[in-house]
């Protein structure tokens, strides 16, 4: 049986993380103090174990796949990449825009993009809902709880 590519990638990824942590532990002192155990000991152990676990995952992948994961059923559920992209884009746009555009508008953009990812094309409704939700949360936190969410382009316009 051919090994599923996704599972190979996951197992390889875990192995790589283990290798990186193990590598990083060599830059940390492992001795010293009364305990004679420095800050590098636990990272080294975590790195070694993750390497071993990654190898064990690889072994599973090539001997019939991850145990208990029905890869055929998973592949049967089609992956909706546009939906994935809309949700991802919404969060990343929020990270890019929050400081310049401010909380209310970046939340609205996030809201509209995530809703679109779930196949909602009622743009006007989503824009309005996003604006109202964003403004309500902004008001609650900035005037009610005294936290400061960024006003962005509305700086000076809002009290």
């Amino acid at each position: 049986m051919k090994a599923p590519a996704g599972q190979v990638a996951i197992a390889a990824g875990v192995t790589t993380v283990g290798a990186l942590i193990l590598g990083g532990s060599f830059f940390l002192p492992t001795g010293g103090g009364y305990a004679q155990v420095g800050p590098g000991v636990v990272p080294r152990a975590v790195g070694v174990v993750l390497l071993l676990l990654g190898a064990a995952l690889l072994r599973e992948v090539f001997t019939g796949g991850f145990r208990g994961v029905d890869e055929a059923a998973e592949l049967h559920l089609p992956m909706d990449w546009p939906a994935f992209a809309w949700v991802s884009g919404g969060i990343l746009a929020y990270g890019v825009l929050i400081e310049s555009l401010g909380f209310i508008f970046s939340s609205t953009i996030l809201f509209v993009m995530v809703a679109r990812g779930f196949n909602s094309r009622r743009w006007l409704l989503n824009v309005m809902t996003g604006l109202i939700l964003g403004s309500a949360v902004f008001a609650m936190f900035n005037y009610g709880l005294g936290l400061t969410l960024p006003a962005g382009v509305l700086k000076g316009v809002l009290p």
Binding site: S107, V114, A115, R116, F118, N126, G130
Partner: peptide
């Protein structure tokens, strides 16, 4: 759609 969009607004 609106439920998950709202959840992500609070999450971020």
């Amino acid at each position: 759609p609106q439920l998950y969009a709202g959840i992500l607004v609070f999450a971020t």
